[in-house]
């Protein structure tokens, strides 16, 4: 099978809308198709990776654990926009998985290298 570089760009907070959850479903399927998958987190999307999701009060299924399980699907390229993190008072220590934190310009370069960019 042809292997292409897929990047899922996550720009929204985890529970305000369904985009984060349904983006993860695309990530898992792309991994099942053995594609070269990476994830980018920017804007409010960086909140998806924040440690300690508590969803009981809003009666929604939490999916923080899924980010931790991505490694089992050989999805290890997680890129986080430094500016978005800083603007929200977050650092790498606040995140639930190991990521590569980079500047917007560097993230732009990674996007440029992709065959398919899906933005959620």
């Amino acid at each position: 099978m042809t292997i292409k570089k897929f990047m899922m760009v996550n720009r929204k907070a985890p529970y305000g809308t369904v985009y984060a959850l349904e983006s993860l479903e695309v990530v898992l399927i792309a991994a099942a198709f053995e594609q070269d998958v990476s994830l980018a987190f920017l804007d409010d999307g960086v909140y998806q990776l924040k440690k300690g999701h508590q969803t009981k009060g809003i009666e929604m299924k939490g999916f923080e654990k899924t980010y931790g399980a991505l490694e089992d699907y050989d999805v290890t390229k997680l890129y986080v926009d430094q500016e978005s993190l800083a603007a929200r008072g977050l650092t790498a220590d606040d995140l639930c998985v190991p990521v590569e934190i980079m500047s917007r310009a560097e993230l732009g370069k990674r996007m440029e290298e992709q065959d398919v960019v899906l933005s959620f």
Binding site: M1, T2, K4, V26, I29, F33, Q35, D115, L118
Partner: peptide
């Protein structure tokens, strides 16, 4: 969703 990934490929 495999149909979406296939479309990308």
């Amino acid at each position: 969703l495999g149909q979406l990934i296939e479309a990308g490929i």
